[in-house]
Amino acid sequence: HNLTITQGKLFFHYNPKLCLSEIHKMEEVSGTKGRQERNDIALKTNGDQASCENELLKFSYIRTSFDKILLRWEPYWPPDFRDLLGFMLFYKEAPYQNVTEFDGQDACGSNSWTVVDIDPPLRSNDPKSQNHPGWLMRGLKPWTQYAIFVKTLVTFSDERRTYGAKSDIIYVQTDATNPSVPLDPISVSNSSSQIILKWKPPSDPNGNITHYLVFWERQAEDSELFELDYCLKGLKLPSRTWSPPFESEDSQKHNQSEYEDSAGECCSCPKTDSQILKELEESSFRKTFEDYLHNVVFVPRKTSSGTGAEDPRPSRKRRSLGDVGNVTVAVPTVAAFPNTSSTSVPTSPEEHRPFEKVVNKESLVISGLRHFTGYRIELQACNQDTPEERCSVAAYVSARTMPEAKADDIVGPVTHEIFENNVVHLMWQEPKEPNGLIVLYEVSYRRYGDEELHLCVSRKHFALERGCRLRGLSPGNYSVRIRATSLAGNGSWTEPTYFYVTDYLDVPSNIA
Rank of each mutant, 00 (worst) to 15 (best):
L440N: 05
F499R: 01
T307A: 09
H454E: 14
E356D: 05
V297F: 13
S474Y: 13
H254L: 08
K278G: 03
V359A: 10
E265D: 12
E465S: 13
K302W: 10
D222N: 10
S344T: 13
R316T: 12
I377N: 01
R471F: 14
R376F: 13
L225G: 03
E351Y: 02
G374C: 11
K432W: 07
W493L: 05
E442Q: 03
P349Q: 04
D261L: 10
P403E: 06
S363H: 14
K460P: 11
Y396A: 09
V443G: 00
G207W: 01
S248E: 02
S284F: 09
A463S: 09
D229F: 12
L228S: 06
R313G: 07
V480P: 01
A463L: 12
V457Y: 11
P205F: 15
A336I: 05
A488Y: 10
G476E: 01
N208A: 08
T502G: 09
R318Y: 03
F419L: 08
E389G: 13
T415A: 06
E378L: 06
F419Y: 13
N295H: 03
T288H: 10
Y478Q: 06
R376L: 14
L426A: 01
P332E: 15
R483T: 01
S268W: 04
R313N: 15
S304L: 11
S342P: 09
S248T: 13
Y292N: 07
T494W: 00
L426D: 01
E389W: 11
F298D: 15
N490G: 15
D261F: 13
D273E: 12
R301C: 04
D273R: 11
E351M: 10
E417Q: 06
E452H: 08
L228D: 15
E310I: 03
E227H: 11
V480H: 01
A381D: 01
C468K: 08
P431F: 01
A395S: 11
R469N: 11
E389F: 13
R218E: 08
N477C: 08
S398W: 12
S392E: 02
G489S: 07
R313V: 14
S444N: 00
Y448P: 12
D291S: 09
R459Y: 05
Y292E: 11
I209K: 15
T401R: 00
L426M: 10
S392V: 02
S479I: 12
D291C: 10
V359L: 07
L321R: 10
L440T: 02
A395E: 11
F215T: 12
V345G: 11
T373G: 03
A309F: 12
G436A: 15
K278E: 05
A395D: 13
E404W: 08
M402R: 09
P300G: 10
T272N: 10
Y500D: 13
K317A: 06
Y292C: 01
R316M: 06
F372Y: 14
G476A: 02
S284E: 08
K361V: 04
S320G: 15
T485V: 02
R376I: 11
C231E: 01
G472W: 05
Y445H: 14
P349M: 04
R286N: 03
V327L: 11
S363Q: 11
G476Y: 00
L232N: 14
F226W: 02
I209A: 15
D273K: 14
M427V: 07
C456F: 02
E378H: 09
Q275G: 08
E404N: 11
P475V: 08
R466T: 04
L235W: 11
P431S: 02
E310L: 12
D261P: 10
Y498Q: 05
S474W: 12
P238N: 11
P312G: 10
L228E: 15
L505K: 07
G374K: 11
F289A: 03
S320A: 15
P387W: 09
T328S: 15
G234H: 04
D311N: 14
E217N: 13
E389V: 05
V397D: 13
Q252V: 12
V324W: 04
R400T: 09
V359Q: 13
D323Y: 15
G325H: 12
V457R: 14
P403Y: 09
R286C: 10
I438H: 02
M402I: 07
L225M: 07
F372H: 06
C269Y: 08
H294A: 14
T415L: 12
H454G: 13
D408I: 00
V331H: 14
S367I: 13
Y441V: 02
P338T: 09
P205S: 11
G234D: 09
V296T: 11
S315D: 09
E389D: 03
Q275Y: 07
E217G: 10
Y448K: 04
F499I: 09
S348T: 03
F499D: 00
V297C: 06
R240F: 07
L277Y: 03
T340H: 03
S342W: 01
P205V: 00
S305V: 12
